[in-house]
Write a protein that binds this DNA or RNA. Structure first.
Length: 556
RNA sequence: UGGGAUGUCGCCAAGUCGGUAAGGCACAGGACUUUGACUCCUGCAUGCGCUGGUUCGAGUCCAGCCAUCCCAGCCA
């Protein structure tokens, strides 16, 4: 895929303090181009929260010029998987509509990381520690009490070098030794209390195989990776603020050239109302089969959003409109829907969907006659052309477009009332035929032949317009409309285990709409915004205002 | 509890050297309309976590409180 230059996001006016920092760095001549990266751990699928980090990093490169790297942060072989590597790549290319400048793997830098570790040991800044995990916790102290030095902190450089090499060669069992940085066991920042740099893991790495018996920790590997790739602005979420001093410590002590030192900046990750974004929770949902998979339409993953018909540009727009700050936020999901609706309104071809059909007969229309009306594919777009919609004596309209006893200001079909069938005739309701159970069997109407696609010659105003489809035109299919689905009501990650209980309040609001009539071929993909209205408390309320893609969610 | 961060409208979010509270979403009215959509008008913080102080003047400076989030994995 070639570089996509159609990305026209207007960044002006968008609040993003990170870009202010970058702009200043560029203006000061600190860097001539920016290099950013998105460093996911391949242990799950990307979701709408990841989209924020991706978009911020990618657009920084677009805006200021430079590079955007995808880097798999695969330093823990126990948790990572090839399937996720593939899905992450696909989702990023889809979201950005272009490939990353470089696709990197943290694990490819293991050799370099090892060399830097040797340097730290030689400089007396790291040591091999034999403390057990429990002992280490004990030595570490807590918020109120300073820690104390490991008894192994004073080993000679030679001994450390020897031990570290033997760790690498696999001579020691898991957890028996670690390599630690010598910083300050009394530091108020717990991360600075002689943090572990390497741990022993006799675990096969999905990429490195059995080459390594030791694996670097995130805190050490990350700054090294950034430095190696020449990242200028390493942007991450707020929870890493406490790790920044350590990030800087490694960068400063490993011998990185001053002009090539990367810097970390933190921003608040996005939270969205009624949406679960915790990766651990999502993994759990998939593993326990609460959902059908990572792209289940109920999931907040990019693959699920794509399946539902969300477009990458709408998601990017959402991220930018939500803004970038350091405030713990909770963005209204209606903003996402707004972004998608706005785009769809301009670009989507219209199709008619009669979700709850009731039969309507035009009594004064010839039995065997059919005609076709040209209906605009998109009134917003003159170039979208028209399509022909078949008209006949027998039609369907939506149940919500008819009221026997119309509430105030109802201007769709009522007994004795007139309404426009969109794109075709004006009809008048003459009679309603009921089923034995009182439900509507069919509505009998007459049409005004003078109004085919035009306004009535007598000048009378027809207030209401109603969607319709001919009985013989549309195939009847059953669809499962996953409306609202990725807004599952789950309070938070902690309580999620409760909601796995079938009796708890994890409820997906899926509406099964049977016998709906749609103006499309089976399997055809389209997007629509469903606007339903119901009368309540003296006014009309919107029922649905959600975007749905039918192709993948329809079940024959 | 020690440290690190953050607190401006229901939700996001701008607010430069202090000068008299942008914008978006949502919501509410109204106009227009062969999608009750879209579009277009209108309304929506005497108030900026709280309390004091400095000042002619403070969201912006100072002090002290309060609230929320993050850190005590050989996770990232």
């Amino acid at each position: 895929m070639s570089e996509n230059n159609n990305i026209t996001e207007n960044l002006d006016g968008m609040s993003n303090f990170l870009y202010d920092i970058i702009a200043k760095d560029i203006a000061d001549g600190k860097y001539k181009e920016v290099c950013t990266r998105f460093p996911p751990e391949p242990n799950g699928y990307l979701h709408i929260g990841s989209a924020k980090a991706i978009t911020i990093n990618y657009l920084a490169k677009k805006k200021f010029g430079g590079k955007f790297n995808l880097r798999y942060d695969d330093t823990n072989p126990a948790k990572e998987d090839e399937e996720f590597v593939r899905s992450i790549y696909n989702d990023i290319v889809w979201l950005n509509e272009s490939e990353p400048d470089n696709v990197c793997y943290g694990s490819d830098y293991f050799d370099k990381c090892y060399e830097y570790a040797i340097k730290l040991i030689k400089d007396g800044k790291a040591f091999v520690c034999d403390l057990s995990a429990d002992e280490m916790t004990e030595y570490k102290g807590d918020f109120n009490n300073p820690g104390k030095d490991s008894p192994y902190k004073n080993r000679t450089v030679e001994e450390n070098l020897n031990l570290f090499e033997r760790m690498k060669n696999g001579e020691f069992p898991d957890k028996s030794k670690t390599l630690r940085a010598k910083i300050d066991m009394t530091h108020p920042n717990m991360n600075m209390r002689d943090p572990v740099i390497y741990r022993i893991m006799h675990t096969e790495h999905y990429r490195q195989g059995n080459k390594w018996n030791i694996y670097p920790m995130y805190d050490y590997a990350h700054p090294m990776q950034d430095a190696i790739e020449g990242i200028t602005h390493s942007m991450c979420s707020l929870e890493f603020e406490n790790n920044r001093p350590l990030y800087d410590w490694f960068v400063n002590n490993v011998g990185i050239e001053e002009s090539k030192k990367p810097h970390q900046y933190e921003f608040a990750k996005i939270r969205i109302t009624n949406t679960v974004l915790g990766k651990r929770t999502l993994i759990k949902m998939v593993e326990t089969k609460v959902v059908d998979g990572w792209d289940d339409p109920r999931m907040p993953t990019l693959s699920a959003l794509r399946r539902r018909g969300f477009t990458p540009s709408a998601i990017r727009d959402f991220v930018l409109k939500a803004g970038v700050s350091k405030v713990y936020n909770n963005v209204d999901i209606k903003l996402l829907e707004f972004c998608q609706r706005t785009e769809l309104n301009k670009t989507a071809k219209r199709k008619i969907a009669i979700l709850e059909p009731i039969p309507l007969v035009i009594t004064n229309y010839p039995e065997n006659k059919t005609e076709y009306f040209d209906v605009s594919n998109n009134p917003e777009d003159e170039n979208s052309g028209t399509r022909q919609v078949k008209f006949s004596k027998y039609l369907y309209i939506d149940k919500s477009d008819f009221e026997e006893i119309p509430p105030p200001k109802f201007f769709r079909l009522t007994p004795g009332g007139e309404v426009r069938l969109m794109g075709s005739y004006v009809i008048k309701c003459d009679k309603v035929i009921k089923n034995p159970d009182g439900s509507i069997k069919e509505i009998l109407c007459t049409y005004d032949p003078e109004t085919g696609g035009k306004n009535p010659p007598d000048g009378r105003k027809i207030k209401g317009t109603v969607h319709w489809l001919s009985k013989n035109n549309a195939g009847k299919i059953n669809i499962n409309l996953f409306d609202y689905l990725f807004t599952a009501e789950i309070p938070d990650d902690e309580n999620f285990s409760d909601s796995l209980n079938p009796n708890s309040k994890l409820e997906y609001k899926d509406c099964l709409i049977e016998k709906s009539v749609l103006e499309l071929d089976m399997g055809e993909r389209f997007q629509f915004v469903r606007m339903g209205y119901f009368y309540k408390d003296g006014k009309y309320d919107r029922t649905y205002n959600r975007i749905v893609t039918l192709k993948d969610s329809y079940k024959p």
